[in-house]
Design a protein around this nucleic acid. Structure first.
Lengths: 336, 336
DNA sequence: CTGAAAGCGCTTACAG
DNA sequence: CTGAAAGCGCTTACAG
């Protein structure tokens, strides 16, 4: 007489006994390995179904040496950026039977190396995705290397090892080309902070596109990627004798600051001044006029990173460039 | 002659041998258990340090039945909300030697129950945090219950079992009181979608605060929590013969839509119209005037949830109400 | 096509 | 205060 097995007894041993096979055969069915008689597999599958059996991750990991875990590490302050990545990463993991472990690290933590090291040693993730600008942090990279954990970096400063990114400079060029196509000839640029490589790429794109059109920069100012620095720049911009008819800000937050600042001074966007940002933050569509900007395919980048990590062949140290997208909205229009 | 142990041999056995003790003693030192002679513990600690030993999570889990994992589950579209929670949850986990596994679920997935169930069975998290409105999804709750996984829910519809929330209605009342204190008497309200419980709470707070002041609602309209619905409401608002001097929108996105819409129609905020939102989204400080709103202490709520989950005593089925915060900014001022 | 045995690296009782 | 033994639930060689 077989009484129904208690809840937690859905182990491989019980499934095997119930199906009248060895645990090895159950393992084969669970892992969809070839070489199981169809009749046997059906019988085992039925028992698995009935007992609601699911292999336990910890047991699989312990024996196999794989953790079925992918890490996504980022600096706390980048949580908005990371949120978009997560969506794609979580989905890609799920589809591969993996799980995503998210580690939010404090930039300024003096023991950051140890934090990373502890996480790695405990979890032993099969791969880690590193987001900017954590992906350039030597403390993190060293810890990862010491554990020999496969890593894919997103938009690092230097393309070394496996990397996924967009072509930032080209995207910036396209922003300028868009403004040129609208008829603008006096185009300004609001720079990002010099310690971020993205600032340099975007400035380069701006300058090269202008040069290619035989034009010179109409105006430039320094910002630090914050809304407030955009506000401050608006003040200087509004005070100019001869203003540019369009300004490209190195990121959305600054573009939004410019927008708010120039409108407060009686300039209308886009009638008097066109504005374009970079990043496509949520705020870009929560203002009027909605902000033209550049979108990175963050979700697709995360998917690509997971796939690279889970690919059967050893991780190729190459750079994957994904297409960006110009989001043309209401803040850019022909010059007055 | 002892050669330095190879990289991966930092197991409990090797540490024990090196220190000349049993593995049990090493275990005691690692887990900071009492009852180890100080001299012994120092010797073991030294070896742990030298071999860079870290216990492997999978081995601990397998034997102990604990996974040292906490799950944070949310609907994909709530990723911005979840990002703020994550910061707190990740930190609280780290401090307790736990790790956060994030599961981003598709609201509309027909097999959502199975997705949750697979995750639970594989990971066996020691606890799960459920965010709105996933925390009210019967499919998710059933799956969790079937696995007997401890759960803390954040801002659910009904306070059943362990819950962390703010007092939404009271917060809404305070918004109205703030506007009253500024001198407003004609106060309108932009409602949220009726299928979200938060809409009802906020409306109730608005109405009761008004009633307590002996006033009647000056204007109401229906929105759906989107920027666009705020824009549409602005159209109706601007067309009124006798406008309210202040409007409380049930969330920030709608308040931002109102802001954009009324300014496009020549009204100035806050000179002609005060505006208050709810949520304190990042966009609230990326517009001008910056938006007055209500902030939930999401980080603290997540920390509280983790602590409840990790508390030694069994999870108490009680509601923890955390203090919200009125963020008074530039969009609210005395009436004209 | 199928199975018996060993063992991954810890923790849990238990004994002394 | 310390340790020897058992075992968590799987997968990995290996054998037949």
């Amino acid at each position: 007489m077989t009484s129904p097995p208690p809840r937690d007894s859905a182990t491989i041993v019980n499934v095997a006994r119930e199906a009248g096979v060895s645990i090895k055969t159950v393992s084969r069915v669970v892992n969809a390995e070839a070489g199981v008689h169809e009749e046997t597999r059906a019988r085992v599958a039925e028992v698995i179904q009935r007992l609601n059996y699911r292999p336990k991750l910890s047991a699989r990991s312990l024996k196999s040496g794989r953790s079925f875990l992918i890490g996504l590490f980022y600096y706390e302050r980048q949580s908005a950026y990371a949120a978009n990545l997560q969506r794609g990463a979580a989905r890609a993991c799920r589809e591969a039977g993996y799980h995503l472990v998210v580690e939010s690290l404090e930039d300024s933590a003096p023991d950051l190396d140890r934090q990373v090291e502890r996480t790695l040693c405990a979890l032993r993730p099969d791969g880690v995705i590193l987001t900017p600008s954590l992906c350039d942090d030597p403390r993190v990279l060293r810890a990862l290397q010491a554990q020999a954990t496969p890593v894919v970096r997103l938009s690092p400063c230097v393309d070394e090892g496996p990397v996924v990114r967009i072509h930032e400079m080209q995207a910036a060029q396209e922003v300028v080309q868009h403004l040129l196509a609208l008829g603008h000839r006096r185009i300004g640029f609001l720079r990002g902070p010099t310690d971020q490589i993205a600032s340099a790429w975007r400035l380069q794109g701006y300058e090269s596109a202008l040069a290619a059109a035989g034009l010179r920069s109409a105006w430039q100012a320094d910002g630090d990627f914050t809304f407030e620095s955009g506000l401050r720049a608006a003040e200087r911009l509004a005070a100019l004798r001869r203003r540019p008819t369009a300004v490209f800000a190195a990121n959305d937050d600054m573009a939004l600051g410019l927008l708010a600042g120039v409108e407060a001074r009686g300039l209308r966007v886009p009638q008097d001044l066109s504005l374009v940002g970079f990043d496509d933050t949520p705020s870009a569509t929560r203002v009027w006029p909605t902000l033209s900007t550049v979108r990175q395919p963050l979700e697709a980048m995360a998917v690509a990173a997971v796939q690279a990590l889970l690919g059967s062949e050893p991780l190729a140290p190459r750079t994957l460039v994904l297409p960006h997208e110009l989001m043309l909205r209401a803040s850019s229009a022909p010059p007055p």
